[in-house]
Design a protein around this nucleic acid. Sequence first.
RNA 1: GUGGCUAUAGCUCAGUUGGUUAGAGCGCCAGAUUGUGGAUCUGGAGGUCGCGGGUUCAAGCCCCGUUAGCCACCCCA
Length: 441
Amino acid sequence: MSDLITPQTLKGFRDYLPTAMMARERLMEIARQVYRSYGFSPIDTPALEYANILLGKGGEESDKQLFRFIDSGERDVALRFDLTVPFARFTAEHLSEIGIPFKRYHLGTVWRGEKPQKGRYREFMQCDFDTIGTTSNAADIETLLVIHDLLVKIGFERFTVRVNNRMVLNGLLEKIGLIGQTSGVLRALDKLAKIGRDAVIAEMTDKVGTTPEQAAQVLDLASLTGSNTDILNRLEALLEGSEVGLQGVARLRELCAVSQAAGIPEERVQLDVSIARGLDYYTGTIYETFLTDMPGIGSICSGGRYDNLAGLFTKEKLPGVGASLGLDRLLAAMEELGLVDQTSTPAQVLIACFEAERLGDYCRIGRVLRQAGVGVEIFPDAKKVGQQLKYADRKGFRLALIAGSNEFAKGVWQVKDLKAMQQTEVAEADLVTHIQAALAK
RNA sequence: GUGGCUAUAGCUCAGUUGGUUAGAGCGCCAGAUUGUGGAUCUGGAGGUCGCGGGUUCAAGCCCCGUUAGCCACCCCA
């Protein structure tokens, strides 16, 4: 008896209470809706994979963060680090069944053995969507539209999707003779906003081994500011002679034009040549999404175009483009911003237990309402009405139904609107329509 | 993975240079003429001071370890 086990979760792993879980489920629901509305189909893959499937796909950094162990059958296994690598394996394995182009979405938990911080956990959910089997810029543009619609549907107005294209960066690096040091240069470049121009130049010359002139040239390109068209025009001039670079610019130009034609507000799409992040496998368009009111939490939806998704698993070359919504990070931001609804009940109507011997009537009406699509909970004990109402209020119910012998004698119910603090007497025959109308408000 | 900060009631915190039964606000529970909730009043429950060692006559307070959270780096959702 004295040896109680301390109830605790692992570092970076969390429990979700009803309030948080309601918000999570709502986000998942929205992600599904938006993805499906663009024609992405759902798939799922196992949480655990053979370690060699996952190793070496995102650079050595991600290998170190893998939760890896030997299972009881001596298999070397690991928990998935993201949803993209399992998707690559999935594609290689099922290509003949799915055909191309193929659009899928995948909501799933992933695991990374990182040092946790706010918005960074060891277990978190990603909501991925990808289009594979086409190099068309239409898919790149659609990816942007999906990200945009997703955030709007969640309820955000103030956010920007920063867009860049690796071809632009590669074009420049090729032009100034840094093609071998791409990843080092990009890593340094990516810190521009954080550490400033001089520090970036220092890192490029000291660590990466560029000349100061080369570093300055990279910086000149990356610090372009102004409207998207300004940036595009100046990029075009800077990249003259570089075929890849210009192709990248042309793709970005089309992306800006088309997304605007499709009705995306211009200020939500921002060309930013300094964003270079993303896993090594990105080769084209890159996306990162930031909340205007909470930039510190980092990108909440990132992705990009890649040339060859499943090159390690099949000889078939599969180009694609996609992005991933970091659901738990987004939720951490929303909590911080006070955007998480405090409701902890999924039902909207509470039937108070006024007289225990009337349980039959309460259950009967409960079922009638449920069949009409209204979630109903019946309070289990005949406690004081005040306490029952307090419970209803705290849990976030919208309506409370109260009926005792007076009401049953008259064939009516008291319908109490808990937010408006108003009570209406409604004949039982009109109850369903009345409640539906009240909830629709 | 490296470095730093923090850890006292469900939550936010106070706790004097180590000194007797550890406090507050909010929340929770129960009452304030036994058919109705967010206000007020009254009362109550709830803490082996994250956990384990050590120093001391004496530790919430000092030292070591450990676990967790947060911050920076790294990386990223």
